[in-house]
């Protein structure tokens, strides 16, 4: 049974213009999928449809074999949203925020250690750097030990060190814990290097397969022929 299955998906915000058009793909357990596409290609919309935030006009989405609109077991899904624009007055400390979703003490300690959050537990979320905030968001996503992890542009605004830490964690989750990961990103180099498959999206699916075959499609979609010539070794 695929972990994620999307069948002939159509979605429009205004009922006139399709943001996503006839999108179909499926993801098996333990796969790390990179979703790429230009701005407005429908990547974040696809994420929100997978999370059941919107209802598609046509087509079906299945998570763990259940239709997403009827899906109840959200503990099996972890989600890292695009950088949050939290009110600058939001006062919660990291410890408070994590405690609001992680009730098990052992799980709390494990995630704090796994994601190296200990030094920032007593700090307010709003006063953290982008990389530190991203680690907290990942900890929130990983609470309840989800099988499927969705990440929407998690590397935006992060320095190289923070990106490396994030990717290492994701690779560990995929390789050693058999988690299924779908990550939207503009960071093509990282996706092409680390993902098992690339989903190239531009309202419809232009390409879905191994990274080796994705480059031509990505160059075409972005209108950047020769982008990777001699610059990327997969």
């Amino acid at each position: 049974m695929p972990i994620v299955e999307v069948e002939n998906l159509y979605f429009s915000y205004d009922g006139k213009n399709w943001v996503l058009e006839d999108v179909s793909f499926s993801v098996e357990k333990g796969e790390f999928i990179g979703i790429v596409g230009p701005n407005g290609a429908g990547k974040s919309t696809l994420m929100k449809l997978l999370l059941g935030f919107y209802k598609p006009q046509r087509g079906k989405i299945y998570l763990f074999g259940q239709e997403v609109q009827r899906f109840k077991d959200w503990k099996m899904v972890g989600y890292v949203p695009q950088r949050l624009s939290v009110e600058h007055t939001f006062p919660a400390k990291v410890k408070e925020l994590l405690s609001s979703v992680i009730t098990d003490k052992k799980e709390f300690s494990y995630l704090v250690e796994y994601l190296k959050i200990e030094p920032i537990l007593e700090k307010q979320f709003n006063k953290l750097s982008g990389g530190q905030q991203q680690r907290v968001l990942l900890a929130l996503a990983l609470s309840s030990n989800p099988e499927l992890i969705l990440l929407d542009e998690p590397t935006v605004g992060l320095d190289v060190h923070a990106v490396n830490h994030l990717i290492n964690v994701l690779l560990d989750l995929r390789t050693n814990h058999r988690k299924t990961i779908l990550m939207v990103s503009h960071d093509l180099g990282i996706l092409l290097k680390h993902c098992d498959k690339i989903l190239c999206l531009n309202r419809n699916v232009c390409y879905f397969g191994p990274p080796e075959g994705a480059i031509d499609y990505i160059e075409e979609v972005f209108g950047l022929r020769g982008l990777f010539d001699g610059t990327l070794k997969l």
Partner: peptide, 13 residues
């Protein structure tokens, strides 16, 4: 608290 932080995250949780 989590709802105030992010409605999307709250829903997933």
């Amino acid at each position: 608290m989590i709802l105030t932080f992010s409605e999307e995250l709250a829903k997933v949780k």
